[in-house]
Amino acid sequence: MTRNLYLGADLTPVFTAGSPQALVAAVTTAFAGVRATNFSERAKALADEIAGADPHLVGLQEAVLWRSQTPAQPGSATHVEYDFLQILIDELALRGKHYAAVATATTGDHEAPSPHPAAFRTSASPTATYFWPAPTCPPRCFRSATPKRSSSRPA
């Protein structure tokens, strides 16, 4: 089973902001979007779906970790606002399903200023996070790799 969790916001305005003021405004809007999409509620419905299907393996995209920090300092946002993977795992546990992350790929770790809190940071794994029923999977029982692309074409 695979699902895209949707990180909760369009980050394009954040990455394309043309000034510090535009960046702060874009971050503020993005995080308001994250709050508005209410992942905690969405996770309940997703946990119901996963529990009902009882898959052996679940692949997730955009299982993000949103963090904040006041005052802002580069790389300092450590307070967890939303941990999408943990929220989903907790919801599954409430349904008697015990899953554990067995492979993750963090493809970005971005921090930007905001008025309150002073900084937001998101670590995203949009390509893949896999989790497995915990009792059936010993540590390192599953590996995930991203194939490397060849820089030259065969003749």
Rank of each mutant, 00 (worst) to 15 (best):
M1L: 14
T2W: 13
R3L: 08
L5N: 09
L5H: 04
G8K: 02
A9G: 01
L11P: 00
P13N: 11
V14Q: 03
V14K: 02
F15A: 12
F15R: 12
F15N: 09
F15M: 10
F15T: 14
G18T: 06
G18R: 14
S19T: 10
Q21G: 09
L23R: 12
V24W: 11
V24L: 13
A25Y: 02
A25S: 12
V27P: 06
T29L: 06
A30M: 08
A32D: 13
A32C: 03
G33Q: 14
V34R: 15
R35I: 07
T37C: 08
F39D: 07
F39W: 09
S40V: 13
S40N: 09
S40Y: 07
E41C: 01
A43E: 09
A43C: 04
A43Y: 04
A47W: 04
A47C: 02
D48F: 00
D48A: 02
E49D: 12
E49Q: 14
E49N: 06
D54G: 01
D54Y: 00
P55Q: 12
P55R: 10
P55G: 10
G59W: 11
G59Q: 10
L60A: 12
L60K: 05
Q61G: 05
Q61L: 02
Q61N: 03
Q61S: 08
E62N: 03
E62S: 02
A63C: 02
L65Y: 06
L65H: 10
S68T: 04
S68K: 06
P71D: 10
Q73V: 01
P74F: 08
V80R: 02
Y82R: 03
D83H: 08
I87E: 06
D90A: 09
D90I: 00
D90H: 08
E91F: 00
L92F: 01
L92H: 09
R95M: 04
K97R: 15
K97S: 04
Y99T: 08
V102W: 01
A103W: 11
A103M: 07
T104N: 11
T104K: 11
G108N: 05
D109F: 07
H110M: 05
E111N: 02
P113V: 04
S114C: 13
P115D: 15
P117A: 11
A118M: 10
A118Q: 13
A119R: 07
F120L: 10
F120A: 03
A124W: 14
P126G: 14
T127K: 11
Y130F: 15
Y130D: 05
F131Q: 10
F131G: 08
F131N: 10
F131V: 09
P133F: 07
P133Y: 12
P133W: 05
A134V: 02
P138G: 12
C141M: 08
F142I: 10
F142N: 08
R143N: 05
R143K: 12
A145I: 06
A145G: 02
T146H: 08
P147V: 12
P147I: 12
R149H: 01
S152T: 15
R153H: 03
A155V: 03
